[in-house]
Design a protein around this nucleic acid. Structure first.
Lengths: 341, 341
DNA sequence: GTGAAAGCGCTAACAG
DNA sequence: CTGTTAGCGCTTTCAC
């Protein structure tokens, strides 16, 4: 790996001039520039991003940090991909971190990203009132929350209208004459799940259906297993739900397993709606009715906000709320058990 | 962000001593160390990884680069996660790059990773004979190929035994009395798909079934659409296949769409086996017979190899071949069309 | 238009 | 055990 100095020698100019060429500075004689360019090519020179970062000012490190719960969750991989595509077009690279919803791990990575002098951090905060995230915001590093809000402070945020999505999913079930509608949700520490539950409850209330706490279950959003067990519990109930609203894709997998296990046929025996549209939702038998979140677009939007803030740290914080889309497919059609209507 | 020098002043020691404390160097007086530690805490000091990287020697940058085709492919997100978990335990962060199977993008990221002074790069090479990958290997940066081999040079590699996996999948179909078995594969430029096709052909030959080129289709492994169309073509054939071996998860989605579209019932009308086990495979109707690849473990293994090489750049290159597992589920059971047997 | 000098935050000899 | 000196590869004043 050759250095800037070597290029400077080769081209018979000062290091400064080479630097100017690298950075497309205006005032360089075309001839000189050509000479430098040729030397760079000859030596196969690539500027060290590390040195550039150390010396340069904030906002030019060409590095972004992303902390998500788990890249194996397809919703988050869509977001990550959206971010990366925008970053790529700006010549930025992305450090990707998985938190596993573990605050210690989140804090660790927040420290690392700071030590790496990233130009910005994008993340769904684990806790709406977490201190680690607060800390990084205070350092002045641009932060954008995606998927989940941060309640403690004003931050740029990209979220889906969770309440609305949950409301329309639940209303759809109610329109199908369901009265006993269960929900598999997760801890309200996550703003997204809290809001989804609110939307669910609001829909019930608006249709004069009492909220029944025994039909509300909180599972682990990172895997399917707790959801499977909770569904089993729900099915065992004296007055079991005739429909289920499941608040994310991983938990839906667990629900589906439980249903299969108990030989419940969808939608004949029970109707279901899942939050998140997944590639596999359409090829299920029956295809799943879903609330689609535009993960990729959310990622793109979040990245754009980061770059805006890098360019102008003074601008007002914004909160972008994207719209979920209810996609009705067969998993909520043709419900048969008359007594439940 | 406070600096090492500030800590040194605060603790009334030299910068070197602070550096020694940071790096757990042996010879530091416990009292001095305590004083430094206290100063660090007081100033909320975090060493700049950037400066450490610039000054330190190779192999201590605490950064790894990973270039995969697309993080939205769950197989690759498993690999990425495996890598990250190992890296996390060693205090490393990872820069994640998506190549989209685009050699220009692969080259771009290879340059970036080099400019970032990463300690190692993990990737499935896009071309078995690509020059960009060759270039980075020549620089001496540790490289580990995962999922796909690099043919041009000796490199540490972690792969699955693709041929064996494909062989057992195809044999399983043959055991079910299928004679006309189609394959949806992809370009042989990828070592993995090439080997899977070899395994498929070998199985046919070993069972005295002639290889029929009209039953071999090459699709785009990054999405489901070409596979959907190719399946439609296959079904239109005068002597359409009675079974299909599909060489990855994304293309299987396309096949399933085509089947649904044509009202083909699995396994009554056609049997299918997919390479890759996915969370959704079990909850399909019927559950899919699959060849499982331990993506997460492969990622872990690849990361371990990188760290081994960072520690000892002289050791022999190794090629780890992991075993695929055929998991028989209902999508290959109960085939009915007598005439096809 | 171009260069000289200084220094980002840290580690690595080399002394003592 | 601790400090001094030098410098990683680059960008940034400030001159000319």
């Amino acid at each position: 790996m050759s250095t800037l100095t070597e290029v400077a020698n080769e081209a018979n100019v000062s290091a400064t001039t080479v630097s100017r060429v690298i950075n497309d500075s205006d005032k360089v004689n075309p001839d000189t520039r050509d000479r430098v360019l040729k030397a760079m090519r000859k030596l196969n020179y690539r500027p060290s991003r590390v040195a550039q970062r150390l010396r340069g000012k904030k906002g030019r490190s060409k590095l972004l940090g992303v902390i998500i719960p788990d890249i194996q969750n397809q919703y988050y991989s869509s977001i990550a991909r959206g971010i990366e595509d925008v970053a790529y077009n700006k010549d930025y690279a992305v450090i990707l971190c998985n938190s596993d919803e573990n605050p210690d791990r989140e804090r660790f990575y927040l420290d690392v990203l700071q030590a790496e002098s990233v130009d910005g951090v994008i993340l769904p905060p684990i806790h709406q009132y977490g201190t680690a995230v607060e800390g990084i915001i205070d350092t002045g590093i641009p932060v954008v929350c995606v998927d989940r809000k941060f309640a403690k402070q004003s931050v740029d945020t990209v979220v889906i209208n969770n309440k609305k999505g949950a409301y329309s999913a639940t209303s759809h079930l109610i329109d199908l004459n369901h009265k006993r509608i269960g929900i598999i949700t997760s801890s309200p520490q996550f703003s997204s799940f809290q809001e989804r539950q609110e939307g669910y409850e609001q829909a019930l209330k608006d249709h004069d259906i009492p909220v029944n706490n025994s039909l509300i279950k909180e599972g682990d959003p990172r895997n399917s297993e707790t959801a499977r067990k909770l569904t089993l519990e729900l099915l065992q109930l004296d007055s079991a739900p005739t429909a289920l609203f499941i608040t994310n894709n991983l938990m839906t997998l667990g629900v589906l397993k439980a249903l299969k296990q108990q030989d419940f046929v969808v939608p004949d025996d029970i109707s279901i709606v899942m939050f998140d549209d997944m590639p596999w939702a359409q090829i299920m038998t029956p295809p799943l009715t879903v609330v689609r979140q535009p993960g990729y677009e959310m990622g793109r939007r979040a990245a754009e906000l980061i770059f805006q803030r890098i360019a102008d740290s003074e601008r007002e914080t914004v909160e972008v709320t994207m719209n979920p889309e209810l996609i009705v497919r067969k998993s909520t059609g043709g419900y048969k058990r008359d007594n439940e209507r």
